[in-house]
C-alpha cells in the first residue's frame, strides 16, 4: 500500500476512535476543553509514531530472529512504558512549558490502547519500518482529529440544556456515535477511487 493510502486509511477510514474503539478513555475523559484535547492529541501522535517504529525494530531484530514471538505482548508494553517515561523526562528537561501543559496526560498514554494497538496492527499488517512510522503518525493524527472535533462540540454543548441523566459522559458517547455515523462516509471504495 502506498504511504498516502496508509495515511488516508488510518486518519479517516479506520479512524482509531470512531471505527476501531482504540483510545476511547482519553477521548471521553480529556475532551472537555479544546486546549487539553489538542495537547493530548499531539502527545499521543508523538508517542504512537515512535512506538510503531520501536516495536517494529523489536519485532524484526529481536523477537523473530530468536523465535520468541510469543513474548510480543510483554515486550511491546514494556517498550511503550519505557518510551513514555523517556519522552516525559525529555520534555521535562527540554521544554518545561510543554511539560506543564502535557504533564498529567503523559503517564496516561502508557495505558492508552491506541499506542499498543498501532504497534500490534503494524506488525500484523507486515509493514516495513517507514510504513510503520507513517501508520503511527497517521493513526495519531486520526486520534487528534477526532478528539479535537469532540472537544469543540463539547464546549458548545456546555451552553445547551441537556436532560440531567444524559449530562457528562452519556451525551459524549452519543455525540461520538453521531460522529462515527458521519465517518461511515469514508470507506474502502473512497480510497480506491482516490488512489486507484
Amino acid at each position: 500500500m502506498t504511504y498516502i493510502g496508509i495515511i488516508i486509511t488510518f486518519v479517516f477510514i479506520n479512524n482509531f476512535i470512531l471505527t476501531q474503539f482504540l483510545g476511547l478513555c482519553p477521548f471521553i475523559g480529556v475532551s472537555k476543553n479544546v486546549e487539553s484535547a489538542v495537547g493530548m492529541g499531539f502527545a499521543v501522535t508523538f508517542v504512537m509514531s515512535i512506538a510503531a517504529l520501536a516495536t517494529w525494530a523489536i519485532q524484526n531484530f529481536i523477537l523473530v530472529p530468536l523465535n520468541i514471538e510469543f513474548l510480543q505482548t510483554i515486550t511491546f508494553i514494556l517498550m511503550i512504558a519505557a518510551l513514555v517515561q523517556f519522552v516525559e523526562m525529555f520534555i521535562q528537561k527540554s521544554s518545561p512549558s510543554l511539560y506543564k501543559a502535557l504533564g498529567i496526560y503523559l503517564p496516561l498514554i502508557t495505558t492508552n490502547c491506541a499506542v499498543l494497538g498501532i504497534a500490534l496492527i503494524a506488525v500484523r499488517s507486515n509493514y516495513n519500518a517507514i510504513e510503520s512510522f507513517v501508520a503511527g503518525i497517521a493513526a495519531g493524527l486520526g486520534f487528534l482529529l477526532a478528539i479535537l472535533l469532540m472537544s469543540t462540540i463539547r464546549e458548545k454543548l456546555d451552553a445547551e440544556w441537556i436532560p440531567a441523566p444524559l449530562r457528562g459522559t452519556p451525551i459524549a458517547f452519543i455525540t461520538g456515535g453521531l460522529m462515527a455515523l458521519a465517518f461511515m462516509a469514508f470507506d474502502k471504495t473512497l480510497l480506491n477511487n482516490l488512489i486507484g
Binding site: 470512531l18 471505527t19 476501531q20 474503539f21 440531567a164 441523566p165 444524559l166 449530562r167 457528562g168 459522559t169 452519556p170 451525551i171 459524549a172 458517547f173 452519543i174 461520538g176 456515535g177 453521531l178 462515527a180 455515523l181 465517518f183 461511515m184
Partner: peptide, 19 residues
Amino acid sequence: SLAAGALLVMGYLKALFNW
C-alpha cells in the same frame, strides 16, 4: 452492529444508569 451503534448504545445505557 457498526461503530456508531456501539457508541450510541453505550451512551444511552450510561444515561439509564445515571437516571
